[in-house]
Design a protein around this nucleic acid. Structure first.
Length: 275
DNA sequence: ATGCCTTATTTCATAAGA
């Protein structure tokens, strides 16, 4: 079985490239992030022509996740139990606050679970966090905490599970092009890395992909200033798998070819082949 | 060679990304 994860940065803007990549790479299961469209707007028919079923979770211009599968797609779950929403700083006290307990914000479209060929998949798009001082950072850590609890509950009864996607955390200093450039920034803080360690403590293993070129298994390069061409990137897209899956891994690579050329996503796909 | 930011939207400007 061939599985993949890819932050496509808009599935509709990326559709020609996504279809070409699917036809060439022929993954069996694909977890997509930042689809940036409502579920009803997802190009289900187009990927269907290539043999894929779709489960899509999205609410418009931000976020959005999906799973494509040509080996079955069952038990689809939109979001996870306890998933928090974002609560920003209110500009002024709202009328609702004055009336009592404010309504908690609903979760964003950042997680979708599905079972394909006997493997439980989670396509995940972690909050960015913006800066360590931001309410978005607090939200990011809360989201990871709830994710850990939800995955832990599933793992009580599930042996084969893959939680993959854009985690928006670089696991180590080797996973950014220049650690000095990230001092005081999000994606590299101790608390974010501890959140990843919490997931690994559930029994999930980090399937580190092989780079196609150079020493760094980066998966993201900013669009600006020729960052890709200088390999000034980050490894923030991760594949976390239980032993039952990790033990079947024959190879894993970052498809940097998909980051080249006209109109790429700023993330490259990770492709994993299982026995 | 791989090439210097892109996306969707309340669109000719903005928020967000990481």
């Amino acid at each position: 079985m061939r599985l993949a994860t890819w932050n496509v940065n808009s599935v509709r803007a990326r559709l020609p490239r996504l279809l070409g990549w699917l036809a060439e790479t022929k993954p069996d299961v694909v977890c997509l992030q930042e689809t940036k469209c409502a579920a009803a707007e997802f190009p289900v028919a187009e990927v269907g022509e290539l043999g894929y079923e779709t489960a899509a979770h999205g609410a418009g211009r931000w976020n959005g996740v999906a799973v494509l599968s040509r080996v079955g797609l069952d038990d689809v779950t939109f979001g996870f139990p306890g998933e928090p929403g974002f609560r920003g700083e209110p500009a002024e006290p709202s009328l609702l606050d004055a009336l009592g307990e404010p309504e908690p914000p609903g979760p964003e479209a950042r997680a979708l679970g599905a079972t394909c060929a006997g493997v439980r998949f989670w396509s995940l798009y972690a909050p960015n966090g913006r800066t360590p001082e931001s309410a978005h950072y607090t939200y990011k850590l809360a989201w990871f905490g709830a994710l850990r609890a939800a995955l832990g509950a599933e793992l009580a009864t599930t042996r084969a599970l893959v939680a993959c996607g854009d985690f928006n955390v670089a696991p180590t200093d080797a996973d950014v092009w220049d650690p000095a450039a990230f001092v005081g920034a999000t994606h590299v803080t101790q608390a974010e890395r501890a959140a990843l360690a919490g997931l690994r403590a559930l029994g999930l293993m980090d399937i580190v992909p092989t780079p196609m070129k150079g020493p760094n298994p980066f998966t993201y390069w900013d669009y600006r200033a020729g960052m890709f061409h200088k390999d000034m990137g980050m490894r923030i897209d991760l594949v976390y798998a239980t032993e039952a899956v990790a033990g079947r891994v024959r190879s894993a690579y970052v498809d940097r070819e998909a980051r080249k050329g006209k109109g790429p996503s700023d993330h490259a796909p990770i492709v994993v082949d299982l026995q």
